[in-house]
Design a protein around this nucleic acid. Structure first.
Lengths: 119, 119
DNA sequence: CGAATGCATCGATGGATGTCAATTTATGGG
DNA sequence: CCCATAAATTGACATCCATCGATGCATTCG
């Protein structure tokens, strides 16, 4: 939904604002911190690729060994990024045997995108 | 001289597949870097609030002096954050007289959100 | 002109962050 | 049991980043 911001002429009076500009409220401080925390988790090329690679994998799940080589980073680094994504609520971790399988949290990306568009 | 560098994030390949089973392609490395660069610009509480405050302002524009006090940060810090947002293509800067007015770039947030949801 | 105001830039600083090598912890197999 | 494999944790390091005070640069006004 794209809003069209209408540029109203100069109305400097404070009490004249009843109709057109409709200045909504800005985001709150703690809401901004929460959203920033989620965005920080994704504001990294490696983590964006990890999310995308997990989503692109068959069955939409992948273990660390599937991700390390195509990503071109060391195993500890990949584990670190995956942990960040899990703590951000974007991935889930499921350890089966020796392997740890990661999956997308359904709807997590979409609700984040919705929050972002509503800022 | 108010030139605005609009950093259009890389929109990756057409992906018309609609349904679940087929594993789509993961995002490319350079697309991930471009998207991460845009997200980094917003992955900060102060910058999220700045964007929101500009959008919420009457006429959807605001100068630095309007933003410094409600944000609770020093003027140099606010100027720094605004510069980051302008360089990310999210805000425009328009200097009129002594004041510098910032506005949202229409649709910038929405296309970023769309790219994010498509990762 | 000179003072004042709004904003950008500079330099410094403390803290966060991405990365890797080395190590540790779990799990499974012979 | 002991070894092999997968993954997480640790420690270290370099870099980035948010923030501020001080300063510089325009612009406006007296």
């Amino acid at each position: 939904m794209s809003f069209i911001e209408i540029q109203t002429p100069v109305i400097t009076g404070a009490d004249a604002a009843c109709c057109a500009p409709a200045s909504r409220d800005a985001i709150g401080a703690e809401a901004a911190e929460a959203l920033a925390r989620s965005l920080k988790a994704l504001a990294d090329p490696a983590r964006l690729r990890l999310v995308s690679m997990v989503a692109a994998h068959p069955d939409a799940e992948a273990c660390v060994c599937d991700l390390t080589e195509p990503l071109g980073l060391s195993q500890p680094t990949v584990s670190h990024h995956l942990k960040v994504l899990v703590e951000a609520g974007l991935l889930t971790r499921d350890k089966r045997g020796t392997w740890a399988y990661y999956r997308l949290v359904p709807g997590a990306l979409d609700s984040l995108a919705a929050l972002l568009a509503a800022v």
